[in-house]
Nucleic acid binder design. Structure first.
Length: 915
RNA sequence: GGGCGUUUAGCUCAGUUGGUUAGAGCAUCUGCCUUACAAGCAGAGGGUCUCAGGUUCGAAUCCUGAAACGCCCACCA
């Protein structure tokens, strides 16, 4: 037998073990030896960005998934965890653009094709990083099924979905106000604009009534005042609106105003939207730069004047401000208005400003032509499935977040003006375009956007060669690409071979079981996946959704690179091992995880504890040749300590299984922690030592140690796969029935093969008594500042039944309490001793020379007991209590009261004698 | 403006459908290198369960209200 090394070498062991697992194909469902007949357990990974690196959020998310996967695999359920990465359109493009910027180049300098080559090159170089890091974490994904959103098949799925929805009329093009990121220069969906409360200004501007000039005399007569947060957009104003019922301004409706700086005449219109109570009750209307104004513009048939370029600089319609950045223009507009006496004031104003979720740039509500998905019909299907109980959220509170969003769903803007992604499968015919050269209206010229052709596009699964109308081969594909999430929302089935409806993986593994992810992406991803599943497969893609906490730093801030507060999981792995990282994360994951470096010590210390306990057990097994996965001894013949640990093992196993079945990972790990550390290491190993010395009990003790620790390894394996595998292999080497043991602990049954019940209440009571007695003696020794190794101690026991147990455990108590001997004495002799009292018994040690401490101790105890007894008596004499409380509670309280009274009497007697 | 969450020991958090003197880890203090483990062992101290009402025989737990902090959503310029 190989002995375990004195120190656990995480790095060496973990790398070696993972390599072996993967090479042997242990992660594939196909190689799993024991499989039950039911449905398989399937998880799809939330695909990390292809160029990303592993951060703590990933570490937590993937640890949880791996625990669930390994747990189910060991339960004998066929298990598949599909891994993969996301092309992450904007994010990846930004990374590559930044790289180019260092060489002083922009993407347009290269052109589309060259640029995409660069991105693919970058993907090749860094694309493996994240999956390599997931392996380091121990993730037991089936890498043979690794997917990538830009793979051939996934791209095919994207086209299939686009065309299907288009044919159903659920995908359409529209001129709308969307969120525009001037830095990324693309449209964003509503979800991609993060609203952040910002203190800005509310600027009050004066517009003159046509024919009047500053200085003005009366507001509402010769001029009006509008309030705006973005004064530079006034250059695109095409009206001013008032509420039709507002008596102050009724007379102005239909009058013309002179828009300053650009000197355009604009009408005063009446619209219900205007809230008379806000600002001045007059609203400047800029249909091309504000969603509300856009709506109003539609209602009143107002022109839309776009005054901004896609990069956030003003355009030629902004007159003198052409070429100026929007924020610069904001300042200049105010300065110029002030010079003309048209700037009234600036008020401080808190409002939510949208920011690009990829680069934090302030987004601009911007009018452009984009592709949209009509979401209502999809959302309705998902809601129907939810009402049928098909989507269960844990924790439950997220359910409402999910359904509320679906109920108020808005159309999804899916086109992006970037290059990295799935190009939209829509084509325009240049020949047709030039033939029916419709004169484009002025309005349309004012609307930028890359797909602003008037022509109806050809939407097709296959790239068309010729125009179906005129036969020309001069087809141009829509330059836009699809939102990254447009491929992600197909993930649960595109990774399983869809749109091939007969793909064996799809047939076998769809729908999946659980989705495990962070709540931040409920809308982006979770809800959309469910909608896609319902729409295209007619079935929700997973039944349970577990949303775990967010990883934060110890001040509660989100971990992020820019804040510099992130802890690199790989550094932790390097330093303490993946198991330590995993264990710590799981234990902390009851809710949001607040991290600091020291928090990982729990995991490090625990792996170390397990390692050392195993070392001890394996050393103690020297010469033992009867190790088997099953206990071949009748538990009834064993000493109480042995029966107790077996009983406790069984109890805890059930408890942990229950927790894991309902995503109680943190609770399960805490139970395990205490079982292994306190019950097994602190008590059982210590109790077992003398039995190992004795030839008569040696073998049975070895058998129990072997059995229990081997089961502990199985229970722990989902959480700390590496350490448990390493140790388990040593047990396997030792096992007599080696052929009964699978090649890896991954394939061993999680709770061991079912045996007769080990539950043993008598043993549990006996060991509980032993523990309290030992603790009592230890406590007294410390209190008295003396070792009792050479002293005879004593005990007083009232209950004859307890007396029997006590006698049986006496040698163990002597040993563990480190006292010379223990004898039973009469209560009347108690004054010769110091005492620690318990309900059933008292432990006594010879008195210290000074009785000072002794008196204090007794007085304290009495002071504690008296009020308690009083309140308990009151409680028990309460008729209502006796009438309504359950019998067990009453009996328990009564027994406890009796014990306390006895105790009080003996304490008082002793105190009297002392004095 | 809506919705949600949190508030328990110095710190981080558990606390299962209300029920036997409220628990753990870290930190602190005391004593130990006891041949598995000093990343350890054995002990100790430390809590008006945010506040105010209510329901109940009984509340950290249920209800109402308040405060503080945090998160999500929202087109009031």
């Amino acid at each position: 037998m190989k002995e375990l090394e004195k120190r656990y070498n995480a790095k060496e062991i973990e790398e070696r073990i993972y390599k072996n697992w993967e090479e042997k194909g242990f992660f594939k469902p196909e190689t799993q030896p024991q499989k039950s007949a039911g449905r398989p357990y399937v998880i799809v990974i939330p695909p990390p960005n292809v160029t990303g690196i592993l951060h703590m959020g990933h570490a937590l998310n993937n640890t949880i998934q791996d625990v669930m996967i390994r747990f189910n695999r060991m339960k004998g359920i066929e298990t598949l965890w599909v891994p993969g990465v996301d092309h992450a359109g904007i994010a990846t493009q930004n990374v590559v653009e930044k790289k180019l910027a260092k060489e002083g180049k922009r993407r347009w300098d290269l052109g589309r094709e060259k640029f995409l080559e660069e991105v693919w090159k970058w993907k090749k170089e860094s694309g493996d990083t994240i999956t390599r890091q997931l392996r380091r974490l121990g993730a037991s994904c089936d890498w043979s099924r690794e997917a990538f959103t830009m793979n051939e098949n996934l791209s095919k799925a994207v086209r299939e979905v686009f065309v299907t929805l288009h044919d159903k009329g659920l995908i359409y093009q529209g001129n709308r106000i969307i969120n525009w990121c001037p830095r990324c220069q693309t449209a964003l969906s509503d979800e991609e604009a993060e609203h952040k409360d910002t203190e800005g200004g509310l600027y009050h501007l004066k517009y003159s009534v046509v024919g009047k000039k500053a200085p003005f005399e009366k507001m509402g007569e010769d001029h009006i005042v509008v309030a705006t947060t973005r004064p530079e957009t006034m250059l695109g104003d095409t009206a001013v609106a008032v509420n039709p019922e507002d008596p102050r301004y009724k007379h102005l409706i239909g009058k013309k105003l002179l828009l300053p700086l650009v000197n355009r005449e604009i009408p005063v219109i009446a619209d219900e939207f205007v809230d008379p109570k806000f600002g001045t009750g007059m609203v400047k209307v800029t249909p091309a730069h504000d969603p509300n104004d856009f709506e109003m513009g539609q209602r009143h048939n107002l022109p839309q004047i776009n005054v901004m370029q896609p990069n956030g600089k003003m355009n030629e319609f902004a007159g003198d401000y052409n070429g100026m950045d929007r924020f610069e223009a904001r300042k200049k507009v105010i300065e110029d208005l002030e010079a003309q006496g048209l700037f009234l004031k600036k008020e401080k104003h808190m409002h939510a400003v949208g920011q690009c979720y990829r680069c934090q740039t302030v987004v601009e509500p911007y009018l452009s032509k984009q592709w949209f998905v009509k979401m209502k019909p999809l959302a309705d299907k998902a809601l129907k499935e939810h009402k049928a109980g098909k989507t269960v959220f844990t924790p439950d509170r997220w359910t409402k977040v999910y359904t509320n969003w679906l109920e108020g769903i808005r159309d999804w803007c899916i086109s992006r003006q970037i290059w990295w992604g799935h190009q939209i499968p829509a084509w325009y015919c240049d020949a047709c375009a030039s033939k029916n050269q419709e004169p484009r209206s002025k309005d349309q010229d004012l609307v930028p956007g890359s797909c602003s052709l008037v022509q109806e596009p050809i939407v097709s699964r296959e790239t068309p060669k010729n125009c179906p109308k005129c036969g020309s081969d001069k087809l141009r594909q829509d330059p836009d690409v699809l939102d990254t999430w447009f491929s992600s929302w197909l993930w649960p089935f595109s990774t399983l071979g869809w749109p091939d409806k007969n793909h064996p993986d799809l047939k076998k593994f769809y729908p999946g079981s659980d989705l495990i992810t962070a709540p931040e992406i409920i809308f982006f991803w979770v809800a959309r996946m469910i909608m896609a599943g319902c729409e295209f497969l007619g079935e929700v893609p997973f039944n349970r959704i577990y949303l775990h906490g967010t990883v934060r730093d110890d001040q509660g801030r989100k971990m992020s690179k820019s804040l510099g507060n992130s802890i690199d999981p790989l550094e932790v792995i390097e330093e303490m091992g993946a198991d330590a990282l995993r264990w710590s994360l799981v234990m902390l994951s009851a809710q949001d995880v607040y991290l600091s470096r020291e928090k990982f010590e729990v995991g490090r210390n625990f792996t170390n504890k397990l390692w050392n306990a195993s070392r001890f057990v394996l050393m103690g097994l020297e010469g033992y040749t009867e190790g088997t996965a099953e206990l071949k001894i009748d538990p009834k013949t064993l000493p109480a300590a042995h029966r107790w640990i077996l009983s406790t093992l069984e109890k805890k196993t059930k408890l942990i299984e229950k927790e894991l079945a309902q995503f109680g990972l943190s609770q399960a790990s805490t139970e395990l922690y205490h079982f292994v550390w306190n019950d097994f290491c602190d008590w059982f190993i210590e109790l077992a030592k003398p039995y190992l010395q004795d030839e008569k009990t040696k073998k049975e003790t070895q058998a129990v140690l072997f059995y229990v620790l081997e089961k502990i390894l199985r229970l722990l394996h989902p959480f700390m796969p590496f350490t448990t595998e390493e140790i388990w292999q040593r047990f396997r080497d030792l096992a007599q029935d080696k052929d009964q043991w699978p090649e890896t602990i991954m394939h061993a049954n999680w709770s061991g093969n079912a045996m007769g019940s080990m539950s043993d209440e008598t043993a549990e009571k006996e060991i509980d008594l032993l523990q309290r007695a030992v603790t009592g003696f230890r406590d007294l020794q410390v209190l008295q500042g003396q070792s009792l190794k050479t002293m005879a101690c004593a005990t007083v026991v009232h209950n004859p039944q307890v007396q029997v147990s006590f006698e049986r455990q006496l040698p163990q108590i002597v040993k563990l309490a480190k006292v010379q001997s223990i004898s039973f004495v009469d209560a009347k002799d108690m004054d010769m001793y110091s005492m620690r009292a318990y309900p059933d018994f008292s432990v006594l040690v010879p008195k210290a020379s000074d009785s000072q401490k002794e008196t204090e101790m007794l007085e304290k105890k009495i002071a504690e007991l008296k009020p308690w007894i009083e309140s308990m008596e009151k409680k028990l004499s309460n008729e209502n209590f006796v009438a309504r409380a359950p019998k067990q509670v009453i009996d328990g309280e009564k027994a406890k009261l009796e014990d306390a009274k006895k105790l009080l009497v003996s304490c008082e007697e002793q105190l009297a004698k002392l004095k």
